[in-house]
Nucleic acid binder design. Structure first.
Lengths: 248, 248
DNA sequence: CAGTGGTCTAGACCACTAT
DNA sequence: TAGTGGTCTAGACCACTGT
């Protein structure tokens, strides 16, 4: 199970026990010892292995659950969470999550899938690649009710994911393919949002006049220990977008 | 203290005790019985008053604390949180929170403060006002390092806040004034973000060329029981803006 | 010093899931 | 029926803040 033995008396240290338990669990999660959808050991098991009370284990486990890293199913067990992209900015195109009628037609179209050697140096840097290295570029568009609301390009290392361009991606998500074909688990992502004027490229794909405002989203997706495996740049129609937050 | 008496045996009902405790506390918060910065009763007091164990009260209190409604200071007590606008979209102009050098000059300038009778009907509706009612409009601009990054207009009911236009707002925040002068507590706000093309108005104030993309933020601020007391419309330079999130 | 929240323990009973 | 997480209790000791 790969868990350290703890106890208040033994270690001369420092922080609360439940924090130490939490970090021990987190380490196993981040090192992929427990993989997405797998079941964690029971609270009883963990508490015995680590030499702390069940209540303390519970505190750690509940904390991880609140952060969404794991989820608990009563009567079944505790399981490793799969990354959830429902919070992604991209989900807020066409007021999704805002509209009552959710039964709209959602479509993904692949515009291109190719290997390039000349991409933005900043992307190369994020992917830890050098000038001239092969980069897989997947170009896709999302339409809702037959209106294209956004398009994006994904950039991945070709040496890391050989033949990715020739795999079918339309039904299943990219991250499922990475997991099943290459054994790579995406455990998190960062996104940043901005706005700018549509370029020709964007205007064409999104069916917009020139000089229209678009939403620009940059994503980096990473694995255990923060290794970036995908850079994604999304551009979408601002008239089909709204992002809401609540303060207080 | 205005708290109901609970117990597992007595009530023939339903949900977990700690949820019921939480809702009782929440009711007192929302009705303003406990005001911002005030101290809540002790866990011991609450548990006695409500007839449940301290552990159960603790569960409820910790949950509220995690949601940010209250905060606990060890050795002192538990206090009602004041609304925190650090998460506001507007805070992400000029990459604030992203930059290491935080010592930049932040300035608020009042462009106008007047009473209008003709404003967007949608704003009137939100403020529960009728056509022709007086509306206080505060127009201000925020500059960082002598560059105007955004400007906003606040709309409030003039009958609710008479003489607001003549009060000085430059040093202290609007919400402090509402609290101290009118006894109105803003307990929350909703914001929604979008992008569009700069209007003449925006281009002039933000010193932008026409046809530049700007970030548009709509805010409604409300009191206990969700009464909207301010509508705020912010427009800012997209080149001075970035909003980040993390998934997973 | 007494009072607060922070942590930790050791039990109890329940509802749900699987077999 | 046995095992899981969900809830609830009743205590213990600690560190911190005020007097």
């Amino acid at each position: 199970m790969n868990l350290p033995r703890l106890s208040v008396a033994s270690s001369a240290d420092e922080r609360p026990l439940y924090i130490q338990v939490k970090e021990a669990l987190l380490t196993n999660l981040e090192n992929g010892i427990w993989k997405p959808d797998e079941q964690l050991p029971t609270e009883t098991e963990i508490s015995h292995h680590m030499g702390v009370s069940e209540g303390t284990v519970r505190q750690a486990v509940l904390s991880l659950a609140k952060e969404g890293r794991i989820h608990r199913r009563s009567g079944k067990g505790t399981f490793v969470s799969r990354i959830n992209f429902d919070q992604s900015f991209a989900r807020f195109f066409r007021f999704k999550g805002n509209n009552e009628c959710d039964r709209s037609q959602y479509n993904v179209t692949t515009i291109g899938a190719e290997i390039q050697q000349r991409v933005d140096p900043h992307i190369l840097q994020l992917l830890q690649l050098n000038q001239g290295d092969n980069v897989v570029v997947l170009h896709r568009a999302i339409s809702i009710d037959n209106v294209v609301v956004c398009h994006y390009r994904s950039y991945l290392s070709e040496s890391r994911f050989p033949d990715l361009v020739s795999l079918p991606l339309d039904d299943t998500g990219l991250y499922n393919v990475l997991e099943q074909q290459y054994g790579v688990h995406v455990v998190g992502a960062k996104e940043s949002l901005n706005a700018r004027i549509a370029k020709k490229d964007d205007a064409l794909i999104l069916d917009l006049p020139q000089n229209e405002a678009v939403i620009a989203i940059n994503r980096t997706a990473f694995t255990y220990k923060n290794e970036i495996i995908e850079v994604r740049r999304t551009v979408g129609r601002s008239d089909k977008f709204r992002y809401d937050i609540r303060l207080g």
